[in-house]
């Protein structure tokens, strides 16, 4: 480390009127599938911030299941920004702690989601069971791998995508429920988290199809077994918008509001969008999206708001205790 630069940087940091003397740090509390994305993005942002202001910065990162991470922030984990799987989770933080305003989702473009994703099928090489759409999954003898919607955020997306397909295809909620019941009868293992399911499918060799985030499926193909798996895009899927936001009161307390805001805004810049695309998230910037169009097949996407009337409602009807998901399973005699 060059001492002169360090001293200069510190001096500059003081001049730029940072309240803290020590190098500032911000904490980004996120969920599981964004690990690789933020590892890269943080490095870029720290470089950018240094170039822009001369201030050295540390970005701390915390990952885990989406629900668990949300609870940690509610119970006092002092995140400056949260980058979670669902608007529903951030709503819960706002509602239970008052640390950010209720209308947080309006503060950044695209419903505060800088990148999007969707649910696809990961099948074994050559697609031996010939699975092309959601209704193929309930054919006899097909084993479907998905995590448990009660404990995994990703699994809730899987479930809702399947439901939206069935409701559209079969025409009623009753029939959609039938379909979902049949679908989960084909599930031999309900892992507690999305990455657990990926491991079950890829490492343990269990199941014919894995329902997964597109970014997870692409990651699995590229990192875990090139040539062993294929992605199948169903006729309809769901638009997942993982939102990001500032946790106002925590950032105020740490004196990091400016940098935390800049951090989130940087996600929307071409640099941030490129990093998202390289980590298999669909960029929202049309230019970058065009550049990476080959990587992301066209899917007919529905949204939770359109089909389910929002996450609050979907959560209540389907996943809370006594909801539709609980009715699928009956006590064994």
């Amino acid at each position: 480390m060059n001492w002169k630069t360090l001293i200069a940087a510190t001096a500059l940091g003081l001049v730029v009127s940072t309240p803290a003397l020590a190098a500032r740090e911000i904490l980004n509390v996120s969920y599981d599938p964004t690990r690789e994305l933020y590892e890269q993005f943080n490095k870029e942002f720290v470089k950018h911030w240094k170039a822009e202001t001369g201030e050295p910065l540390t970005v701390r990162q915390s990952h885990g299941g989406a629900g668990k991470q949300t609870r940690a922030v509610i119970d006092g984990l002092e995140a400056d920004v949260v980058t979670l799987a669902l608007a529903y989770d951030i709503d819960a933080i706002s509602e239970k702690t008052g640390k950010l305003p209720k209308d947080w989702q309006k503060r950044l473009p695209h419903n505060s989601a800088p990148y999007t994703s969707t649910i696809v099928f990961l099948v074994r090489k050559g697609n031996p069971k010939g699975l092309h759409d959601w209704d193929d999954l309930i054919k006899p003898g097909v084993e479907v791998i998905t995590p448990n919607p009660k404990t995994s955020g990703g699994a809730r997306w899987n479930y809702l995508a399947a439901w939206a397909f069935a409701q559209d295809k079969y025409g009623s909620e009753e029939k959609a429920k039938d379909y979902i019941t049949k679908l989960f009868k084909q599930v031999p293992v309900l892992d507690s988290g999305a990455r657990g399911s990926t491991t079950t499918f890829v490492q343990r060799g269990i199941g014919d199809v894995l329902l997964a985030w597109e970014n997870e499926a692409l990651l699995a193909i590229n990192e875990l077994g090139k040539g062993d798996f294929e992605i199948v895009v169903p006729s309809v899927s769901i638009l997942a918008e993982p939102p990001v936001t500032l946790v106002d009161k925590n950032a105020q307390k740490h004196g990091t509001t400016d940098v935390a805001k800049a951090y989130l805004e940087y996600l929307y810049t071409p640099v941030g969008q490129e990093i998202a695309a390289k980590n298999y998230y669909r960029p929202t910037d049309p230019k970058i999206a065009k550049k990476y169009a080959d990587a992301f097949p066209d899917v007919n996407l529905i949204t939770v708001d359109d089909v389910f009337g929002g996450w609050q409602k979907a959560q209540k009807t389907h996943f809370n205790d006594g909801g539709v998901f609980d009715q699928i399973y009956k006590p064994s005699e």
Partner: peptide
């Protein structure tokens, strides 16, 4: 420990 740690890398 996982419940009370907060999982902050390097911290």
């Amino acid at each position: 420990v996982s419940v009370v740690s907060g999982h902050i890398r390097g911290k």
